[in-house]
Simulated scan of single mutants.
Amino acid sequence: MSLLDVKNLFVHDIRTGEEIVKNLHFSLERNTCLGIVGESGSGKSMTAKAILGLTSPWLETSGVINFAGENLLNATREQLRMIRGQKICMILQDAHASFNPLYTIGKQMSETFREHFGMRKKDAIEMAVDALEKMNIHHPAQVIKKYPHQLSGGMLQRCMIAIAMTMKPDIIIADEPTTALDAINQQEVVEEFKRIRELIGTSMIFISHDLGVIQYLAQDVLVMQNGACVEYGKSEELFADPKHDFTKYLIERRLSLSEPFQQSIRHGGIHHVRAN
């Protein structure tokens, strides 16, 4: 049985009548990564928000999002709040937007751990330091004393991943987590996502324009265009023999520009090729 099953998912704008997501179907198996790829405005991020009930009030979501035997579209606000973070973590594109600028990183991390684990403040701070150490962050005891604006985007993404890793959720949804980073930080952050899945077996939905990252991380790939799925299947098969013209365009027009991709994989790196 799949960990997450999405069937007949629609997201409808009741103000304009626009269908933002159209009849989407996909599954997420345990300890696998599903890559969702498509150009801007294709409905990728909206799909992620619909899963966690984070869509705007004027958007109507229908269908089935089956997680742990429950349709999340029927869950109460309190039930969704408990699921977010503890069972399903979401890591956003802009790490700065994920942290409150008025509080230190350590306070925000420790408060998250205290709320979900019911631990003392001292223990939560120690957990925060330990989490950053596991992310190979130098001088974590100093990092937790800093405010978000004092850290780089790459460092803040690592802090977000450290929180997710500590929570050990069933699913991590990463929405364009490398877009705002430079090439070096992109590579390091992607490697951390790969390491999380290998260490704790967390399943992932990784949303990206970067086809190189999707090919590197994902076992299954969903290609979206104009709110709909145009192709869905095993990563190896989809990249080797794409069926839809749009998928062929993305792969042939972008990945073919980069022969160094396979070389970078063999040398432990990642070549980044953007879909738009």
Rank of each mutant, 00 (worst) to 15 (best):
K87Y: 13
N71P: 02
T61V: 07
T61G: 03
I88N: 09
E70S: 11
R77W: 11
M90K: 00
H96Y: 14
T61W: 01
T76N: 14
L59R: 01
R77V: 13
L92S: 14
Q93T: 03
L72N: 11
L72I: 09
V64G: 00
G69N: 04
E78R: 15
T61S: 01
L59C: 00
N74T: 11
Q86V: 05
I91W: 02
T76D: 14
L73I: 08
G69K: 06
V64D: 09
M90V: 06
R84G: 08
F67K: 06
N74G: 03
A68H: 11
K87W: 07
A95Y: 03
E60Y: 04
L73E: 09
I83S: 06
N66Q: 07
I91S: 07
E70L: 04
R81K: 15
A75R: 14
Q79M: 10
N74A: 11
R84K: 14
I65C: 06
A68D: 14
Q86H: 14
A75K: 15
A68V: 00
D94V: 04
I83E: 06
S62V: 00
L92K: 01
R84S: 12
S62C: 05
A75T: 09
I65H: 07
C89V: 06
A68C: 09
H96A: 10
I88M: 12
G69Y: 08
R77D: 15
I88C: 09
M82A: 14
